[in-house]
Design a protein around this nucleic acid. Sequence first.
DNA 1: CGCCGCGTTGATGGCAGTCAATTTCAGTGG
DNA 2: CCACTGAAATTGACTGCCATCAACGCGGCG
Lengths: 256, 256
Amino acid sequence: MIIRNSSAVRATESIWTHQRVTVRQSPLESLEPLAARIQCTRGQEIYKEDSPVNYWYRIISGVARRFSARADGRRQIVDLLLPGDVFGFGARGKHHFAVEAAIDGTVVARYPRSRLDALAESDARIARELRDAACEAMSRLHALILNLGRTTAEEKVGHFLLKIAERLAGGPSDKVVLPISREDIADHLALSVETVSRSLTQLKRRGVIRLIGTRQIRIIDRRALAKGDEDQFAIIGGQRPAEPYRARRLAYSDYD
Amino acid sequence: MIIRNSSAVRATESIWTHQRVTVRQSPLESLEPLAARIQCTRGQEIYKEDSPVNYWYRIISGVARRFSARADGRRQIVDLLLPGDVFGFGARGKHHFAVEAAIDGTVVARYPRSRLDALAESDARIARELRDAACEAMSRLHALILNLGRTTAEEKVGHFLLKIAERLAGGPSDKVVLPISREDIADHLALSVETVSRSLTQLKRRGVIRLIGTRQIRIIDRRALAKGDEDQFAIIGGQRPAEPYRARRLAYSDYD
DNA sequence: CGCCGCGTTGATGGCAGTCAATTTCAGTGG
DNA sequence: CCACTGAAATTGACTGCCATCAACGCGGCG
């Protein structure tokens, strides 16, 4: 059920935002008057690798990808940016990754950094919002690391589906409209496109998900997808296996 | 050459800190009077998964690992904490990972969060230091994601060596004393211990590195280790391959 | 000495990357 | 309305890498 509650809403927006039913306001939303709105076509660059950090950004609608390109031509999508996500941190005054819109009609709010930083200086609420945004970004990185650390492609893809469904809906959800192409998923999970495709069809064949077209997915067996999520300590009741705390002297000879 | 410029320095410290010749002061170093010093044995828990965030921490000497345990018994080391590194962020008032000392004699400074937050409120310099620490943590996560995204085990291990050498020495360095076991490296890079071992011997055999004992490593051919580091855009002179910006309407039928 | 933790090496099977062919689908023009 | 086009997605065959199981060497310590 696509919600079309506002005729002013752009068609591309309604498709990608209808699953986001979060009531909670996202960081920087209150400051939107300060922002410039940028509408992007697919593949359009929002900022370059190694460019100076002059702005904060927030996705209004659509999807963007933060990535780094390797020498071998492959691409690592380090972060997938969905509506409400704030980005544009960076380190030591530089962005170390590039950001592009991943679909046509993506709208991004761009906040002048100097003004926001000045505001944050005086207004603790603003400062807090920026901190929160940073924490959310870190959480996404953590989730990706855990996913990349998985052994099989099916697990990676399965977990990606769960995560993206949750992020799009603002909570656990059984329906997903994949916001990005197979290629982007592959570059995100460090798999080949073919493997992503095979994983999806395999999950479908086993009755874990259902595919409607190429982008709509319905999650049937959530437990099967969540496999390997619970940590092992939980199973044995919070009691972790004792590690031998034997002292072990480290005596490496000096060198050079 | 091990630096023993202070007789008060503990033996275990000198082993792991002698490569750190950074002059730059690390965040929170100036506030150490506020901190409690905790000395840990190997495997000792510094904080648990899902525990409340009451403190900031900084590694004085030694090594700690931030990790998450999976249901299958494997472990993902999400972050490797070396002297000077600040940790203990968390999200929504909880730590989502556990931290343990990775070697005996690891010393950690523990700062009461409430006091630091109050200080940060009034002192912009402290606030900045905390932000910087968060940025560094994010950089480490980024680096790990890029490494996990690599295709071959040898590349992963090679890059890990470069990174860790750089972090330990405070800049590019040819000598490394690995601060952690093969098992920890494996759990960090999402490989098996055997593969880590094989990768190292392979690099040795090809003359890329030299192994002195099990932990001391000397980097011979830096370029071979850095393979795949440069991004592809650099090669073609900052000009990225044009992506077809063709408009593509997304018209998925409504569902349910 | 024997045990244990750590690291290395060997043999084997399974999973995923690569190359290639085919199908599906959306958009376009007749 | 239908054929054409190019991109996206799927499927198949094959190769290579890595996880697994297993055995062994080494050093510290009881």
